[in-house]
Design a protein around this nucleic acid. Structure first.
Length: 242
DNA sequence: GCGACAG
DNA sequence: ATCTTGTCGC
């Protein structure tokens, strides 16, 4: 069962959340990966319009095969509104509930959002990474802050995402003929590592597999096509051999 | 004051 | 994020 540290309270006002981000900023470590990544988790949440009920899920994949080795999901209540720049205060609590259900311990985690490509350099990937103390990266479908020039058409090509004169991420072409995704290191990984890891997670879609599969999982749970109970008691093939 | 604004 | 079907193209 994957665990995590209680760094702080989640009962905060938006104003207090901003102050907390300022204090967390100095704890974020952007550095080369410390070891090889053999498993990576994708995390995402889904919810009904006009409802505070949220479904959080995590899918763990093995690299380089991209086979799914574990899936967990939870239903929870959002306690914080969506505010640009404060996304982690809305999504992290439910995601941690799901994280706590994991039987395996992923070597890294990919979040649907930004890492340090954030106004105060503490996007959800940085915040989540700090709490679970694992290499974390953000792979977003759009930009929060920063400017970039369109990367070349070839998959794998990228251009720096620059904010206030600092390279905080990259516009990465994961597939020809589609918009780039925005990758940024979150914690315990650097930009080079985040880009390389994201590319290792790409198959046929614009969005890398961890995030894509986590998205499909939480939507299926929200629609009742899959149940949390089913997930709780369906051990993955691999876990039988662990 | 105006425009921007992850999910 | 979510609301929603078909449709154009490889």
């Amino acid at each position: 069962m994957a665990h995590f540290q209680n760094l702080h309270s989640w009962a905060l006002s938006p104003r207090e959340a901003v102050e907390l981000q300022r204090s967390l900023r100095g704890k974020v470590r952007i550095e080369p990966l410390g070891r090889e990544i053999g498993t990576i988790a994708g995390a995402d949440i889904s919810f009904d319009k006009f409802s505070s009920t949220v479904y959080a899920g995590i899918v763990v994949l093995r690299l380089p095969s991209l086979e799914v080795i574990e899936e967990v999901g939870v239903r929870s209540e959002a306690q914080f509104p969506y505010v640009p720049g404060l996304l982690s205060f809305r999504e992290t609590p439910p995601l941690l509930e799901a994280w706590a259900k994991l039987k395996c311990e992923p070597d890294a985690v990919m979040l649907d959002g930004q890492g340090i490509a954030h106004p105060r350099r503490v996007g959800i990937a940085s915040h989540f990474g700090l709490i679970v103390d694992r290499p974390a990266l953000g792979c977003a479908k759009s930009v929060l802050v920063g400017r970039y020039v369109e990367p070349e058409r070839e998959p794998g090509s990228w251009t720096p995402l620059v904010h206030q004169g600092e390279t905080v991420g990259a516009a990465l072409r994961t597939k020809a003929g589609v918009q780039p995704v925005f990758v940024s290191p979150g914690h315990l990984i650097d930009l080079q590592g985040a880009i390389a890891l994201t590319l290792r997670c790409c198959k046929a879609s614009r969005v890398p597999e961890p995030t894509r599969l986590a998205h499909l999982l939480v939507n299926a749970v929200r629609r009742g096509e899959r149940t949390i109970d089913e997930l709780d008691r369906t051990p993955r093939q691999d876990s039988l051999f662990d």
